Amino acid sequence: MSPLPTDAPILPLSQTVSAQRPGDAPALVAALERCRAEDGAFAYSAGREIGTFRIEARTLNELAQRLAGVTAVAAVALETGPIAIQPCWTPGRLAEAEHRLGSADGGTGDFAVVRLRIVPRRSGEGNIFETEFAGPPEIDALNAAVARGVARASAEGVEGEGRIIDTRVVFIDGAFHPKRSTPAGFEEAAIAAMRAACRTAGLRRLEPLMEIEIMAERDHVLPVVNDLATRGGSELRRRLAQKGVAIAAELPLRAFLTYEGDLAALTQARAKIIGEPQLARWAEVRRR
């Protein structure tokens, strides 16, 4: 049992960027690469459309800073898209799927058979990979290739959106050819088997939740808590403070982006967010 070989943090916010003039695209790519080289935490990926790239961040301030840095380094006119919130996905139930690449009887090209079982885990437990496929020494390289394929499929998520998280993946069975099986073929088969298993399992869409603390007067505690529930949030705990009642709560990031102004309107500016909001976890969001 081991974590899947993908340790990049999951960043909930993103914004697309592209060069206004097609000829300036190389300058944008060079700027993105330079920003990543100078800051190991800088993250970007290819967008859905050719020539577009998605800059990722944990907070709005961080996203704005990263975009400003890329703009300054590129020194060309750029176009940006709207800020997007990235979901994650997790299987709804246990499922199995098999993918066969090529034929073992004659023919040419890669041959691989990969059968995977995926099992949902609790929120925050992460992804793990296990293998029950054993045999001669060359199997070790094929097992490693399957782990890479599962990690790639998990990172790509659904149609390139978000990632698959909190999932146990077991390589339960397979077949190989001593001359025609390669790690690349097994990686390709693992990606296809992982996608098929996820379709069978029925993926649940998860949204990022922020943990926040609200300082409110006593008369406003109940309205604030009820309002949180209508936005898909929930109260975690509360404590008495000199200036009122401090309410710790979870709130979907989508709602949090406009919540400060909404909270002021609800309480006639007598309640406010205190401290630094933190990304808590990904979960299904149910609104009243």
Results as ranks from 00 to 15, higher is better:
residue 20 Q to N: 06
residue 261 G to E: 14
residue 192 A to S: 11
residue 168 R to E: 13
residue 220 H to T: 02
residue 230 T to C: 11
residue 250 E to P: 04
residue 247 I to Y: 00
residue 116 L to G: 03
residue 254 R to F: 08
residue 185 G to Y: 06
residue 142 L to D: 05
residue 118 I to A: 03
residue 74 A to Y: 09
residue 1 M to E: 06
residue 61 N to H: 14
residue 179 K to P: 00
residue 264 A to T: 10
residue 99 H to R: 01
residue 83 I to T: 11
residue 142 L to M: 13
residue 242 Q to K: 15
residue 170 V to G: 06
residue 18 S to Y: 11
residue 269 A to W: 14
residue 47 G to D: 09
residue 220 H to L: 11
residue 204 R to V: 00
residue 157 G to R: 04
residue 238 R to A: 10
residue 39 D to L: 07
residue 155 A to R: 08
residue 45 S to R: 15
residue 172 I to D: 06
residue 99 H to Q: 02
residue 235 E to M: 15
residue 278 Q to V: 12
residue 218 R to S: 08
residue 205 R to S: 02
residue 7 D to G: 05
residue 212 I to N: 04
residue 76 V to E: 04
residue 126 G to N: 06
residue 225 V to S: 01
residue 111 F to M: 04
residue 193 A to P: 13
residue 64 A to W: 14
residue 66 R to D: 13
residue 161 E to A: 14
residue 261 G to R: 15
residue 77 A to Q: 11
residue 157 G to Q: 06
residue 56 E to H: 02
residue 79 E to D: 11
residue 158 V to R: 10
residue 125 E to N: 01
residue 126 G to W: 05
residue 140 D to E: 15
residue 228 L to C: 02
residue 45 S to W: 12
residue 45 S to H: 14
residue 112 A to Y: 06
residue 10 I to T: 01
residue 101 L to F: 05
residue 259 Y to R: 13
residue 216 A to V: 08
residue 133 F to C: 05
residue 110 D to V: 07
residue 77 A to L: 09
residue 102 G to F: 10
